[in-house]
Simulated scan of single mutants.
Amino acid sequence: MTGQDRRRVLVTGGSKGIGRAILRRLSEDGYRAVGIARTRPADLHPDEEFYECDLTDADVTRRLVETLAEDAPFYGLVNNVAMAPLTSLEDCSVQDMLDAFQLNVIATLVCTQAVLPGMKRLGGGRVINFSSRAALGKENRTAYSATKAGLIGMTRTWALELAPYGITVNVIAPGPIETDGYREGNLPDDPRTKALLASIPLKRVGAPTEIANTVSYLMNDLTGFMTGQTLYIDGGMTISAVKIA
């Protein structure tokens, strides 16, 4: 199979962490994985397709994704990019809410709208949106929880609208994942880190590759009967009665 024959998949926020792992896994699966993010990955390979884009700028993002989709339609879209303001209710500002909404919700909307005509021409496709376990509630995450809960509602609506075209739309909602951001904010000896680990039934945080494996599963033809669903990949936190620190 040539490069032009392989199905294209677009991954937002693909420069590091979970997004980087997703790009690698999809490439291993044989897809033409295309990444976009504000900055290029430090370990970008010469044969990788990657574009720099400020995803908080809806107009710039739409133009880029529409241009990429004109070159060849995308079969899959992984809306992974996100930001998480860490503020209490008292300290959460209107700007915090607007910033989180712009990146977590508007960028998802714009990218999906831009790839949709091509998916319809292909006669099917996969849209995977990223929410979070925090959508169910987490202290000091007002803006983040609100936007991530909103993504679940959007996904269920889109699943209904796009089902006639053979396009499935699902959500992955990770719990704590061992990315650079997690390690920077959760020092091993910090009591809050220990309390967090104690609240996870599996007693560990997840790996980016485990999230990438779930993306691979949802992208597969064999999962074409699943749509509008939210998969919590969180080590059992959503079923635990332990208070989350």
Score class of each variant (00 low, 15 high):
residue 70 E to M: 11
residue 109 L to Q: 15
residue 113 Q to E: 15
residue 160 L to A: 06
residue 96 D to I: 02
residue 130 F to V: 11
residue 164 P to Q: 01
residue 155 T to D: 02
residue 147 T to P: 10
residue 156 R to T: 09
residue 59 D to E: 14
residue 57 D to S: 07
residue 154 M to W: 13
residue 127 V to G: 02
residue 85 P to H: 10
residue 133 R to M: 13
residue 122 L to V: 04
residue 131 S to T: 13
residue 146 A to R: 00
residue 158 W to S: 00
residue 100 A to P: 09
residue 148 K to Y: 14
residue 121 R to M: 12
residue 51 Y to M: 03
residue 61 T to K: 06
residue 91 D to V: 01
residue 125 G to I: 07
residue 144 Y to W: 04
residue 43 D to E: 12
residue 107 A to F: 00
residue 61 T to Y: 00
residue 85 P to K: 02
residue 148 K to F: 06
residue 101 F to A: 15
residue 149 A to K: 00
residue 58 A to G: 02
residue 44 L to G: 09
residue 88 S to Q: 08
residue 96 D to L: 07
residue 156 R to V: 13
residue 89 L to Y: 13
residue 35 G to V: 10
residue 76 G to L: 08
residue 63 R to Q: 14
residue 115 V to A: 04
residue 119 M to F: 04
residue 170 N to Y: 05
residue 114 A to V: 04
residue 134 A to Q: 06
residue 169 V to H: 03
residue 134 A to L: 02
residue 131 S to F: 10
residue 165 Y to S: 15
residue 76 G to K: 10
residue 85 P to L: 05
residue 42 A to L: 13
residue 78 V to F: 14
residue 39 T to L: 09
residue 71 D to N: 08
residue 67 T to K: 07
residue 70 E to V: 09
residue 139 E to F: 07
residue 89 L to M: 08
residue 141 R to D: 11
residue 170 N to L: 06
residue 133 R to H: 06
residue 91 D to C: 04
residue 64 L to I: 00
residue 53 C to P: 04
residue 38 R to A: 07
residue 134 A to R: 08
residue 133 R to L: 15
residue 135 A to M: 15
residue 149 A to Q: 03
residue 87 T to W: 02
residue 142 T to M: 14
residue 120 K to E: 14
residue 48 E to M: 08
residue 41 P to Y: 09
residue 132 S to I: 12
residue 45 H to W: 03
residue 110 V to C: 09
residue 111 C to Q: 01
residue 172 I to K: 00
residue 53 C to T: 01
residue 125 G to L: 12
residue 108 T to V: 10
residue 91 D to K: 13
residue 128 I to K: 02
residue 112 T to W: 00
residue 75 Y to E: 00
residue 105 V to E: 12
residue 84 A to I: 08
residue 129 N to H: 01
residue 38 R to D: 11
residue 77 L to S: 10
residue 84 A to K: 01
residue 71 D to I: 10
residue 138 K to A: 10
residue 121 R to F: 05
residue 84 A to P: 01
residue 72 A to M: 11
residue 54 D to K: 05
residue 85 P to D: 11
residue 83 M to C: 12
residue 77 L to G: 02
residue 109 L to G: 04
residue 161 E to M: 06
residue 161 E to L: 06
residue 122 L to C: 04
residue 94 V to H: 08
residue 115 V to R: 00
residue 96 D to V: 03
residue 87 T to I: 01
residue 173 A to D: 04
residue 93 S to L: 07
residue 79 N to S: 14
residue 126 R to H: 01
residue 142 T to D: 03
residue 169 V to A: 08
residue 58 A to L: 11
residue 170 N to R: 02
residue 101 F to I: 11
residue 62 R to L: 09
residue 57 D to T: 04
residue 46 P to A: 15
residue 158 W to Y: 08
residue 113 Q to R: 14
residue 94 V to A: 13
residue 93 S to K: 07
residue 166 G to R: 05
residue 37 A to M: 11
residue 58 A to N: 02
residue 39 T to K: 07
residue 40 R to C: 05
residue 171 V to G: 02
residue 69 A to C: 06
residue 125 G to A: 07
residue 69 A to T: 03
residue 68 L to F: 03
residue 109 L to H: 13
residue 136 L to M: 10
residue 156 R to L: 05
residue 36 I to Q: 07
residue 98 L to M: 14
residue 65 V to S: 05
residue 85 P to V: 09
residue 158 W to H: 06
residue 141 R to F: 10
residue 69 A to W: 04
residue 141 R to E: 13
residue 70 E to T: 13
residue 143 A to I: 11
residue 96 D to F: 11
residue 82 A to L: 08
residue 117 P to L: 03
residue 156 R to I: 14
residue 93 S to Y: 08
residue 110 V to W: 10
residue 72 A to E: 12
